[in-house]
Design a binder for these strands. Structure first.
Lengths: 147, 147
DNA sequence: GCGAATCCCTATTATACCGGTCTGGTGAAT
DNA sequence: ATTCACCAGACCGGTATAATAGGGATTCGC
């Protein structure tokens, strides 16, 4: 029950872009360096995010990526949906798989509700709010160390 | 982001046991047949559930498994925790992995909160409530079919 | 125009985990 | 004693994820 690295890498990249909004496009290489991610791998993810309309790319020298929309209009749920697929906890392709008789299966409801709960959580969370939290954390870094 | 079959298989088995409470031990074979699960695989899961103290086994002829506690005192969260591990969405072993600097990483908080949300959801859900829902569904089966 | 920089795309590989089987052992009931 | 059922562990194959490699397309600066 872990998120794949695709989502987490992608989110880290998107957060970088959110923090750099208004400063022109950011190179994949730059993001990868700052976040310590494999650059060529991240490239693939960025292409997916572009195709999904979440970022825009400018090619050529001094190119890079930028958010395609306002940070406040991009939710974490969207990003995860692109990189991870829908947040369904079980493969129950509309009634077929699962337990065989989903109409009378109380568990199907549970898995479904759980997925919806998660989705709602991530939908309530935008890049803007995330960026703000990040900025706050960096502005007031933790000065207490464990002894 | 799928639950492994371990959790879903295990839940289905536990629900069977909850529905058969007070009727003596139930054989693994019986559960597997009713739920169409691979018997030998389910056996492994039942052992884990026993070691975790969620079910009790009686060996020998006419043996089988039964819930070790009242259905209302067993939450879905517990069962999943045994079979799936803790509900953490990312591997962030208390600060080390993740992004490298979890103290100043807004995302770590997000993943953490999401895991807690899920856990809370599953904790609010007991075998008793599940069994009740299941019984209700079976008593009033769906009679409307899509045309 | 030329070349460098950067995104774009596809193919390939390796590793780990998951789902599952098989074999043999242990304890209880008849 | 025999049978039934849980117990324990090794073992194995498929698949998806994570990552690499390499060659193209597009734009900028000169």
């Amino acid at each position: 029950m872990k998120l794949s690295t695709r989502s987490t890498y992608g989110m880290r990249a998107m957060l970088e872009l959110a923090l750099a909004v208004g400063q022109g496009p950011v190179m994949v290489r730059e993001i990868a360096d700052r976040q310590h991610l494999p650059a060529t791998y991240l490239e693939q993810l960025m292409v997916l995010l572009r195709k999904a309309g979440l970022v825009s790319a400018t090619r050529g020298a001094h190119g890079g990526y930028a958010l395609a929309r306002e940070p406040r209009d991009i939710t974490v749920a969207e990003i995860i949906a692109v990189l991870e697929g829908p947040l369904e906890l079980v493969d129950c392709p509309s009634g077929a798989g699962c337990c065989g008789q989903p109409e009378v299966c109380a568990l199907c409801d549970v898995w479904d509700d759980a997925g919806k709960t998660l989705t709602a959580f991530f939908q309530s969370m935008t890049l803007a709010s995330l960026a703000e939290r990040q900025r706050a954390k960096c502005a007031a870094p933790v000065l207490m160390y464990a002894i």
